[in-house]
Simulated assay, not measured.
Amino acid sequence: MTDSRQHSPSAERNREPILAVLREALPASGRVLEIASGTGEHAICFAGALPGLDWQPSDADAQARESIAAWTAHAGLANVRAPLALDVHQPDWGVDALDAVVCINMIHISLWSAAQALFDGAGRRLVDGGVLYLYGPYRRGGAHTAPSNEAFDQWLKSRDPEWGVRDMEAVVALGDTAGLTCERVVAMPANNFSLVFTKRAG
């Protein structure tokens, strides 16, 4: 039988530092939508460590969804749902009344319109006080935070001119427009950052 589980070296490296932030940022219980879940390794790590959460993985890519389902079956976790076929640009995400949205390493490898759609969709679906968590590299004050990030940005743009390491200030501004306040910025290993947004009441 073919094993559909994919492996991501970066997911293996960053899952524990991300989990440390999520333990503080996410509610003890509730429904979490993970957008662009990739291999599914993050989903089973976080859902396994945070059993009070109902974890809904998703990805636009069919092979990624196969990997997510395979990892979920392998882990035997009851609090991870079957992955959704989800592109943030689509009007119907298939879920509402979310306590948290988690999105790791997506907005620099997608169109800026995907970041806009992510915030718009999260802002409309999160309950008051709900959390949007983002992880990845960012520029600050218009400058890269490390030479490696500048090289990464150039590589991304060589693949697609619309991709690239985003300005943190522009991302925070997107949140503000969507009713989401950036409560925490956490410096992470390998020149990445965690951004924690909270949905404002009303």
Rank of each mutant, 00 (worst) to 15 (best):
D3Y: 01
V21F: 09
E41P: 01
L53I: 12
A49Q: 08
P189T: 02
A64Y: 00
R23F: 00
M106N: 15
Q90H: 14
W112K: 14
M1W: 03
A190Q: 01
G30N: 15
S67P: 01
V127E: 08
S67Q: 03
A78T: 12
L180H: 07
R125H: 08
P147L: 04
R140G: 00
L53V: 11
S110Q: 12
W112L: 11
I68K: 05
E12L: 09
F152S: 05
I107M: 13
S37Q: 11
D61Q: 12
A100G: 15
D87S: 11
R124H: 08
Q56M: 10
L174F: 06
R184F: 08
W93A: 08
V80C: 05
L180M: 12
L53F: 10
P161T: 08
S10N: 00
H7F: 12
A100E: 12
S29E: 15
A11D: 01
L77N: 03
P161N: 11
A170N: 09
W55Y: 14
W93D: 07
M106E: 11
E41K: 03
R159A: 05
D61G: 07
R5H: 03
C182K: 09
W155I: 00
H108W: 07
A82H: 08
W93R: 13
S110C: 15
I44V: 15
F152Y: 03
W71K: 01
A85W: 08
L26E: 09
A100R: 14
C182Q: 07
I35N: 11
R13I: 02
V21C: 06
V21H: 07
D54P: 15
G175F: 05
Y138P: 06
G202T: 14
E34G: 13
L98V: 14
A146F: 02
A25D: 08
I109D: 04
L26C: 14
L126M: 12
W155Y: 01
N149G: 02
T39K: 00
A178E: 07
S148H: 04
G130R: 07
V102N: 14
S58T: 13
L50A: 09
A201W: 00
D87T: 07
T177R: 14
L26R: 12
G179V: 12
L134E: 05
A170P: 09
E12I: 07
L19V: 07
S58K: 15
I107H: 11
D3C: 03
V186I: 13
D92A: 13
F46E: 00
D128Y: 04
H89Y: 06
E16C: 00
G121Y: 10
V165S: 01
R159G: 12
A20P: 04
G141A: 09
V185P: 05
G202I: 08
G121C: 11
L118I: 13
A85D: 14
A47K: 02
